[in-house]
Simulated assay, not measured.
Amino acid sequence: MNDPMRIVFLGLSLTSSWGNGHATTYRGLIRELDARGHDILFLERNAPWYASNRDMPEPPYARVILYENVADLKKRCEEAVAEADLVIVGSYVPDGVEVGRWVQEKAQGVTAFYDIDTPVTLGKLERNEWEYISPDLIPEYDLYLSFTGGPTLRRLEREYGAPRALPLYCSVDPEIYYPATMAPAWDLGYLGTYAADRQPTLERLLIEPARRWPSGRFVVAGPMYPDKVRWSDNITRIEHLPPAEHRRFYNNQRVTLNVTRADMVQLGYSPSVRLFEAAACGIPIISDYWEGIDELFDLGPELLIADTPVEVLDILEKIDPEELQTIGRRGRNRILTQHTAAHRAAELETYVEPLISSRGLIAPERNTTAAQPGAKPV
């Protein structure tokens, strides 16, 4: 796409990564869109739990407006939404149904719903829980951009009437996540917020192996774990790890663990941000299995699968260290060729370009900005 767009995002958070993975995704995608010459405005509800934990209060690649409620959003941002070439509403936006209806009423450009939580969304729709998207809104969005690919995309079109459902997976920034030479502090680690449906797998693939291997060194980083969880003495706990510390955390592990939410396992084709971050650091990964993971990685040469504590311990104790490092390097190469934030920005342009062109939405007087410094046409 040679013409820069004015893009408005309405997302859960860009300024704070506390307790959510949305900020990391938005930061990478928006930074790359900005690098390609697009003008980005991010609209975010001023939630108190994020206000006290803003690790990026002023992103260098986007303007941010913090609004107090839907009435404040409508009052302050109607013109920006109406004039944008592309308006993207994300999952888990507070009052997302009302916000989505307003966007569809006011936006003159292309509208898209970006579902960073597709398995959760489908579960909510089946239970008639319309927290941030409702069945009547889906057909009105021009695009349904999904963190989950595979058969789920056709389901969104067939059952919910999405005009066009397309994958826009999470991604990673290779300038932030890359290998480092250091002696690892831990044999196996895990990074993730507590989730009840994920905890049994964490118990099976890290906590139980730690109990069986007292001399091993383990670590779990992430908030919201209840007091009832029993950690053995050889497991280090880190309550919150901001994105700026993720790379060092991964590089401090000999092997890292990926654990997938139950809804994501059921649908398949749902890679996590943490999976790509760890792979970009060149760290060998042990993951639980789900359909579609073998389309993202070559299982064995690039990523290891385990289902039991014994399988985890066999990997940690029996696989030659050099072979583990080779697996990590292969996994990193896969990420660099297919799953960076730059790849996602280019994919988004490819999705939007036909709609922009067919509607003649980018005014000729703004097309000249493509030649300005910073604009990077595809």
Score class of each variant (00 low, 15 high):
residue 349 E to F: 02
residue 266 Q to F: 02
residue 63 R to Y: 01
residue 264 M to Y: 03
residue 81 V to Y: 00
residue 1 M to K: 13
residue 249 F to E: 04
residue 41 L to R: 09
residue 378 V to H: 12
residue 115 D to Q: 09
residue 68 E to S: 14
residue 195 A to R: 15
residue 317 E to Y: 04
residue 275 L to T: 11
residue 6 R to W: 00
residue 356 I to K: 11
residue 214 P to S: 10
residue 228 K to W: 08
residue 45 R to H: 10
residue 372 Q to G: 12
residue 336 L to S: 04
residue 362 I to Q: 09
residue 292 G to W: 00
residue 156 L to I: 04
residue 287 S to A: 12
residue 84 A to V: 07
residue 158 R to T: 03
residue 36 R to S: 12
residue 79 E to R: 15
residue 374 G to L: 06
residue 194 Y to G: 13
residue 147 F to V: 10
residue 162 A to S: 13
residue 58 E to R: 11
residue 375 A to L: 02
residue 204 R to F: 00
residue 74 K to P: 07
residue 14 L to T: 05
residue 28 G to E: 03
residue 323 E to R: 15
residue 125 L to W: 01
residue 124 K to M: 14
residue 334 R to I: 01
residue 207 I to Q: 03
residue 266 Q to M: 15
residue 132 Y to E: 06
residue 89 V to S: 06
residue 363 A to K: 15
residue 377 P to K: 14
residue 26 Y to I: 08
residue 344 R to N: 09
residue 201 T to R: 13
residue 72 D to Y: 02
residue 306 A to G: 06
residue 277 E to D: 10
residue 158 R to K: 11
residue 187 D to H: 09
residue 252 N to R: 13
residue 288 D to H: 04
residue 360 G to V: 07
residue 273 V to I: 14
residue 178 Y to L: 12
residue 69 N to C: 07
residue 108 Q to T: 08
residue 145 L to I: 04
residue 1 M to P: 09
residue 235 I to Q: 06
residue 233 D to S: 15
residue 320 D to H: 10
residue 352 V to P: 00
residue 349 E to A: 08
residue 29 L to D: 05
residue 219 V to D: 05
residue 4 P to Q: 03
residue 335 I to F: 05
residue 9 F to P: 09
residue 29 L to N: 07
residue 14 L to C: 14
residue 62 A to C: 04
residue 113 F to S: 08
residue 21 G to M: 05
residue 233 D to Q: 15
residue 197 D to S: 07
residue 223 P to N: 11
residue 349 E to S: 07
residue 142 D to A: 14
residue 38 H to L: 00
residue 89 V to C: 06
residue 136 D to V: 12
residue 128 N to D: 14
residue 11 G to A: 07
residue 32 E to Q: 14
residue 142 D to T: 02
residue 210 A to E: 05
residue 133 I to M: 09
residue 18 W to T: 06
residue 264 M to F: 06
residue 376 K to R: 14
residue 305 I to P: 02
residue 84 A to M: 07
residue 228 K to V: 10
residue 26 Y to Q: 14
residue 151 P to V: 04
residue 100 G to K: 13
residue 12 L to Y: 10
residue 202 L to T: 06
residue 207 I to G: 07
residue 118 T to L: 11
residue 91 S to K: 05
residue 183 A to P: 04
residue 151 P to K: 12
residue 111 T to W: 03
residue 284 P to N: 05
residue 194 Y to Q: 11
residue 40 I to P: 12
residue 344 R to H: 02
residue 376 K to T: 11
residue 12 L to R: 14
residue 344 R to Y: 01
residue 375 A to Y: 00
residue 8 V to P: 01
residue 18 W to E: 11
residue 290 W to V: 01
residue 374 G to C: 09
residue 134 S to I: 13
residue 284 P to M: 02
residue 48 P to V: 00
residue 311 E to Y: 01
residue 54 R to D: 05
residue 257 L to S: 10
residue 310 V to D: 13
residue 197 D to K: 08
residue 375 A to V: 06
residue 158 R to E: 11
residue 110 V to A: 05
residue 289 Y to C: 04
residue 196 A to C: 09
residue 207 I to H: 03
residue 140 E to D: 10
residue 309 P to G: 09
residue 113 F to Q: 02
